[in-house]
């Protein structure tokens, strides 16, 4: 069975039904004929929007980690909390493992996801393949389920309410930047489809073999 005969086939990751991959309706999605699992979402076959979103997410995530997410004022005292400070405080209180959990899910995993996507997408958009492409792609797929920025947002809201009863707690710039990052990551995941990444990848590799696409631009890629 050659690779080409599988080109228009798709396998449901939840029920293993082998089916024909119909064209995804514009702004719609494709679901499994048997178990209704979402198989493919519509996504533009250009990388411009995902690249722009990833760059913006990188900036907002940087801001989110430099400025405090929350500030607590009590009489003349003032306490700021960034996520890194929270991790450090957990470590200082002897709950290092909880700190590691917070660090991974709210700082490291999102940072790795954003940086990794930029590493993959920017060169692809410019017409070449980044080193370590395939291993990084696999790593990003594994990391993505451990990004919990949206849960952190809700956590800050709960903390604000809990502290509101005893002192003046306020949201900081970091919180708004976290919110922006959350929004951008959501938009990014809905505007980016793995198959588009691989279609670009294939076009770039073909271009390098000297068979097509000599002007360095990758256009008209069908996913």
């Amino acid at each position: 069975m050659s690779q080409d005969s599988n080109a228009n086939m798709i396998v449901c990751h939840e029920c293993d039904l082998l089916q024909h991959a119909d064209a995804v309706p514009r702004r719609g999605s494709l679901r499994c004929a048997r178990c209704d699992a979402p198989l493919l979402r519509w996504a533009s076959d250009k990388l411009d929007v995902p690249v722009a979103l990833a760059v913006t997410a990188a900036v907002s995530f940087l801001i989110a980690n430099i400025f405090p997410v929350m500030t607590l004022e009590f009489q003349a005292l003032r306490m700021d909390a960034t996520m890194v400070a929270a991790v450090w405080q957990l470590h200082a209180q002897g709950e290092t493992l909880v700190g590691v959990l917070v660090l991974v899910t709210s700082v490291l995993a999102p940072a790795a996801l954003i940086a990794g996507l930029l590493w993959l997408l920017l060169p692809l958009r410019l017409g070449f393949r980044a080193p370590g492409f395939a291993p990084l792609f696999r790593a990003l797929m594994a990391i993505s389920s451990w990004v919990m920025v949206e849960v952190l947002m809700l956590g800050v809201v709960v903390a604000l309410v809990k502290l509101g009863h005893m002192a003046s707690a306020s949201a900081g710039i970091g919180l708004w930047a976290f919110g922006a990052t959350m929004l951008l990551l959501t938009l990014l995941s809905s505007s980016l489809q793995g198959s588009v990444i691989w279609a670009y990848h294939e076009a770039v590799m073909r271009g390098r073999d000297g068979q097509a696409d000599v002007d360095g631009k990758v256009v008209e890629v069908t996913s």
Binding site: V69, M70, L72, M79, A86, G155, A159, K162, A169
Partner: peptide, 27 residues
């Protein structure tokens, strides 16, 4: 992943509420 909510709340409270003898929060 939404169950991580309480872990984040504890992390934030422990970082912010550190007013020595007056009031402090420990994880």
């Amino acid at each position: 992943k939404w169950s991580m909510l309480d872990v984040y709340v504890v992390a934030l409270l422990a970082t912010l509420v550190r007013f020595d003898a007056f009031m402090s929060v420990h994880a």
